[in-house]
Each structure stands twice: as structure tokens, then as C-alpha cells.
Design a protein around this nucleic acid. Structure first.
Lengths: 248, 248
DNA sequence: CTTCGGAAAATTGTATGCTAAATTGTATAC
DNA sequence: GTATACAATTTAGCATACAATTTTCCGAAG
């Protein structure tokens, strides 16, 4: 095995480097998550600590910490083959998993939407305004048919994120932070196909905005739930068409 | 620091010991969680890795892994004091946190209840029957006024657990496993007071059972949500009365 | 008595060696 | 040709050394 003593020397001199003490775990976490979400680590492929630690230029310890975290969040899973325990793999992407995931995200975010709709009127109005801006941009892209999945994704994500950030407490926020990004894996995988069905989603957004602006918690929650459920359906039909892309 | 080389020697000889290789993290996790839930590690108190590793007779490495896990689940939190980062404390118990937690559990479990109500009729019926048994026992305890918090807790927990296990997929199950036990911390703390309001809770259970038996997903989900919301309220009023028991 | 500086102690972050478990490869018997 | 046993290799679990940082404690100055 390669004998490496990587960043250490550099660290000593370069105090201003991004990798101060205590950031290796975080940095490893972010990098690994990025790799997984973008599919540069193939779903289902085995994870080897030493490989990753080498790749990221740190020792196995922070990589381990990061992996535990990713495992808890569901990006990485135990290799469940009969009996044998705890060999890690990149969590596979399956239709079933997608469905369950989207339902869950819907409930979490729905709860946040309810809370948002129960904010004081001025805060609600401000939020609604921001949401309208985002939604309008999405509508624009749907109308002109400009195909730019990355931008669409960012706008959609921002829309949902705004709702949560406006109202959620620490727990709800943390939960959303942990779960929502996993939906991103599916989105990215089927992005181009999903963009086609953008108009529908935009229409659903409108209902959510109206509910929040009007202070109708029930409707806001329900609207968000429906949006995600339909998202699951849209995603599902795309998966049916293109097949489960287990590997890349 | 104490020089300990604890189980190793023992391990060699005693192959049958519970602590085979690969179980130290799990074991540490379970023990620590137990300690926290039972309040033997006081809410808000600082966590010292070396202490715990000594206490559990393992090195810091598995303790660290276990702590990361507990942190992500919310039993352990970063010490948020201004600026300084990532010093761990046992997650404090506050009224605000309890409210948020109960709401979230309600949504998660509500989703499971919906799925349960959408099972095939025979499975639904079997589940409903089990639930009725549990609920009847609870009703009995409420009627006779027998004060046995531990038993009440077990019955109530079993009720909710049955719903989730009957229907939830792996993700939902994992999420419930992670979140629900945190409600247990609050329950334990205020158990005796909560038992008084048992009858109400039992009535709510009846509605849930009816919805599941009848295959009414909406009603089942709503029933569970309401049950937890009311639970939050009941808990809240107890906390108001007794005060937040930050320390034990 | 309070506050400030700074040394000493405590505590966490990180790397790494060692060992057990698990996987893979290989040879031999059937 | 397939199955089984066994050896070699790989990989993860754990302990531990050490370093960087934070906290605590103590004395001097205000």
C-alpha cells in the first residue's frame, strides 16, 4: 500500500488553507457526498476506506467518520448479503427506494410548509413573494422550453429550501438537510426527462404559494405533500422508461 | 490517563463473549443510548470521549463512531456556544424541542399508518386485531387506575411499533427507529404525570384502529398525527407544571 | 474583588500499526 | 467440469501515539 503523509507538511506552513484542524471530517464528508450524488461513485459499488482516504489525501480516520455519517443518512449502506454484516456500498438507486424517499421528504417538508403558513402575516408575505419569484422563473423556463436541467434543479431546490428555512426548527431543518439531498440523486439521474413535465410541477407550486400567503396551514402542508407524491410518480414513470440505472 | 487494555486478553480466550470483533461500535452505541434515554447521562452535560471509552472498556475509536451516530440521530448535540464548534453534549430536553420532535414523529408514523391502512384486507385485519389487544390492555390500566408507567409505556410503544413494522419500507423503518426513541426520553421524564391522561390517548387509538381496519388511509394518517400532536400538548402542560428538568 | 495573561491540563483531531475477518484465488479430489 | 478445502490477499475494526486546540487555573495587576 502506498505510504502517504499527505497534507500535513503543507498544513503547518499554510495556516490559511481551507483544511484547518477539525475540517478534515467535514471536508471528506462533503467531497464524498458530492461524489455519490453526482454518480462518480457508482450506486452499489463497494466502498474501500483506504482507497477513499488516499483519494482525498487524508488518513482513514476522518474518512471513517464521514462514512458513518453518510451511512446514517442513507447515502451509503451495509452490504446486506445474507448473514454477512457491515461491508459498505454506495446506496443503490431503485424505484422502490425512490418512492419511499419522496413520500418521506413530502411529509417532512409538508410539516415545514404548515409552519410557514402559520407564521405572522408579514413573514408569510415576504416568503410568498420570494417563492413567487422563483416559481415565475421556473414557469418561464417551462414556457420557453429552454432545456437547462441544472438551472431548473437549482430553482426548484431553492423553492423548497426557502419554505423550510423560513419556518423549521433545528430538528426539522436537520432532518430536511439529511434527507432532501438524497432525492437529488434521483433527480440528477433522470433530470432531462423530468424537465419535460415541468409545467405540472409549477402549477402545484402555485397552490402552495397561495396557501402560505393565505395562512392556510392545512392546504400548505397538503400542497407540498402532493407535489412530492406527484414527483415520485413522475420519476417512477421515467424510471420505467429508462430502466433503473444501477450502474453508470 | 488510565492505561487500559481491557477486553482484548479476555477476548482471545473467551470466544463466546458477547463482544466479538465488530460489535464494539454497536455495543457502545446501545449502551450510550441507554444511558442517555434513562437520564444517567444528564441532558446538557458535556461528553468526554475518554471518559466514556474508559467507562465502556473500549478505546476511543468505537466510542467516537457511536457518538457520531448518536449525534446524527439527535441524542447528542454540538455545544453551540458562540463561535466554538463541535464540542459534544448530551442533547438537552426542552419544551420547544419536545414539541418539534413530537410533530415529526407524528408525520413519520402517520405515513406508516397510511401504508398500513392500504395493506391487503387480511393483513389489515390481522394488524387491527393485534392493535386492539394492546389498546384494550391500556384501556384496562386506565380504568383501574393502576399506576405502572413502565408497563404503560411498553404497551403504548408496542402499539405504535406494530403499525410501523407492519407496513413501512426500510427507509421509513430506519427513520422511525432513529427518531421515536428520542420521544422516549421525554416520556420517561414525565411518565407518572402523563399516565393520568391515559384515557384520552386510548380513545385516540380507537380511531386509528378503526381507520386501519376500514382501509381508510387518510383517516389513519390523520389519526396518528393527531395522537402525537395531542401527546405533545399533554407533555407540554406537564412540563409547564413541573418545569424543564434540564438536569437530573 | 475583578480581570487579564499565560502556563498547565484536558480534550479532541488525526495518523497509523496490528490483528481478525472476509474475500478471492488456486489446487486437488471427485 | 464442478465442488471443496485451503492458502494468500484484502479490508475493516480497534487501540494507541501524538499533535493541535481549548479550557482551566493561578497569580499578578488594576
Amino acid at each position: 500500500m502506498t505510504r502517504y503523509r499527505p497534507i500535513k507538511a503543507k498544513l503547518r506552513k499554510d495556516k490559511s488553507a481551507t483544511a484547518e484542524r477539525g475540517n478534515r471530517v467535514r471536508s471528506a464528508y462533503q467531497q464524498l457526498r458530492e461524489l455519490i450524488v453526482h454518480g462518480r461513485l457508482a450506486p452499489g459499488s463497494r466502498i474501500i476506506e483506504a482507497d477513499l482516504s488516499h483519494r482525498l489525501g487524508v488518513s482513514r480516520t476522518p474518512v471513517r467518520d464521514a462514512l458513518r455519517w453518510l451511512q446514517q443518512e442513507g447515502f451509503v449502506a451495509g452490504n446486506s448479503r445474507t448473514g454477512v454484516k457491515s461491508r459498505l456500498v454506495v446506496a443503490p438507486l431503485t424505484k422502490e427506494d425512490a418512492r419511499e424517499l419522496y413520500w418521506i421528504v413530502g411529509r417532512i417538508e409538508g410539516l415545514a410548509a404548515r409552519k410557514a403558513a402559520e407564521l405572522e402575516p408579514s413573514a408569510r408575505a415576504a416568503l410568498a413573494k420570494r417563492l413567487r419569484t422563483l416559481s415565475d422563473r421556473l414557469r418561464g423556463m417551462a414556457r420557453t422550453g429552454r432545456r437547462d436541467p441544472k438551472r431548473v434543479f437549482e430553482l426548484d431546490r431553492s423553492f423548497h429550501r426557502n419554505i423550510v428555512e423560513a419556518s423549521a426548527g433545528p430538528r426539522l431543518l436537520a432532518l430536511h438537510n439529511a434527507i432532501q439531498p438524497q432525492a437529488e440523486r434521483y433527480w440528477r439521474l433522470y433530470a432531462s426527462a423530468i424537465v419535460d413535465q415541468l409545467a405540472t410541477s409549477v402549477a402545484e407550486h402555485a397552490r402552495i404559494i397561495r396557501a402560505i400567503a393565505g395562512g392556510d396551514g392545512d392546504a400548505a402542508e397538503h400542497g407540498v405533500e402532493v407535489n412530492w407524491q406527484n414527483g415520485a410518480q413522475r420519476l417512477g414513470s421515467v424510471i420505467d422508461t429508462l430502466g433503473e440505472r444501477g450502474s453508470w
